[in-house]
Design a protein around this nucleic acid. Structure first.
Lengths: 109, 109
DNA sequence: CACCAAATATACATTGTAGAAGAAATAACG
DNA sequence: CGTTATTTCTTCTACAATGTATATTTGGTG
């Protein structure tokens, strides 16, 4: 069965959700993700990832109120679960372990 | 066609190769990878990744001399190409961009 | 030949990515 | 008012790329 390592995009999406705090719904996540990664991401890609993470119970979601704006339907907001936070922390720690002792980009002050 | 983002394992393998310097061949890479990620990886998984990275010209390889040990056949050593180094640096930078402002694990002094 | 170390082949599961289609909301207009 | 256009957000579907495991082959000694 499934090993539980997080993929590159999965980690990215989770980090973006943390960065957005409240207000982390599909479109906002996509935009912030594109901004931080400096490349375009489609909504389909984002939602697929969101759904898979939710299925693994690393994320949970709740519906907000519809907006007044034209077309402003109710948004689905996401946040990390305890397991999600733990999985992300683990991924980050592993990453540090891998980077340890290496002379990589962006290390200079 | 293929977007050129590196996967979690691809990045990990590349970092391990950097960490090993000379001496980065299949088995050593597997062992160091397992050590740093604190989990077992099969040789097959490692070689598959190595081959794919080489196919993308992010890695190059050369054969060493056979050992004296019984069964010690010639090893295939790997190192990053210029493109490989660049791709890894880019991945690292993107990662930093994603982590920016977040309160993640392992940040405490 | 038996045995060992390293590498290759093969197969399948999980993730990444895109594009099309559907659903919910308000504006526009007869 | 009621129906249709239009906007925003979400779901569905399909396929490519990456992750992972096991079995097989190759090259090298005792």
């Amino acid at each position: 069965m499934g090993r539980n390592t997080l993929g590159t995009l999965e980690q990215a999406v989770m980090m973006v959700i943390l960065a957005l705090g409240d207000g982390a719904y599909g479109v906002a996540i996509r935009d912030e993700l594109s901004r931080r990664t400096r490349r375009e991401h489609t909504l389909g890609a984002v939602y697929t990832t969101l759904d898979r993470l939710a299925a693994k119970e690393l994320l949970e979601s709740y519906l907000g109120e519809p907006t007044q704006k034209r077309g402003g339907r109710a948004k689905r907001y996401f946040k990390l679960t305890g397991d999600g936070r733990q999985a992300l922390d683990h991924a980050v720690n592993t990453r540090h372990e891998l980077e340890y002792g290496l002379d990589l980009a962006g290390k200079g002050a």
